[in-house]
């Protein structure tokens, strides 16, 4: 039970810090800021654990629960910050029920929303790409996280282009 309480406390502290920082000023690099907050809270927790003489077993157990739970929120966050075409479409259908919509109305709804431009802007803001002379280029060697995801995706087979 102490593992649950400890992990819950650490997560609550991280979330409170997250809300406080976002209220003061939303960071330009949101995902990186979230990583820093959750890692910072974890490091603080580790220091307290060492000072209190917590066993390695309990420490590992807390880490194994805290890290994936933190990642769960950080991975969910882009869906909160940026509108998903699929979720937006479902909202639209929900608002139009019980009359329903035609295929053209659904298409127009999605076309009116600048999903692609919004994603480009986010990639620019996060420093992953840069615009030079009207062309978008990868910054440096590229994002390790994106390369991992794309490499893993190859296990499934080819990815259809276009959405």
């Amino acid at each position: 039970m102490s593992i649950l309480l400890t992990t819950g406390t650490l997560l609550a502290i991280a979330m409170l810090l997250h809300f406080a920082v976002w209220k003061i000023r939303r960071p330009a690099r949101e995902i990186r800021s979230l990583f820093l907050i959750f890692t910072g809270v974890l490091c603080g927790g580790l220091v307290v654990a060492f000072l209190r003489g917590v066993t390695w077993f309990d420490l590992l157990r807390t880490l194994l629960l805290y890290v994936p739970t933190s990642f769960s929120y950080i991975l969910t966050y882009p869906a909160i910050g940026a509108d998903s075409p699929t979720i937006s479409l479902m909202h639209f259908l929900g608002d139009k029920s019980p009359d329903g919509v035609t295929a053209e109305e659904a298409t127009e709804f999605l076309v009116r929303r600048p999903f692609v431009n919004a994603r480009l802007t986010e990639l620019l803001k996060s420093g992953l790409i840069v615009e030079q002379g009207g062309r978008y280029l990868i910054v440096g060697r590229g994002s390790l996280a994106f390369r991992i995801i794309l490499t893993y995706r190859k296990i499934y087979g080819s990815i259809p282009r276009g959405g």
């Binding site: 699929t86 994603r119 986010e122 790409i129 590229g142 994106f146 995706r153 499934y156 990815i159 282009r161």
Partner: peptide
């Protein structure tokens, strides 16, 4: 990997 527009755009640029 399946449906993120951001990642797909990034991979096209890369």
């Amino acid at each position: 990997g399946q449906s993120s527009i951001r990642i797909r755009i990034y991979s096209e640029i890369a």
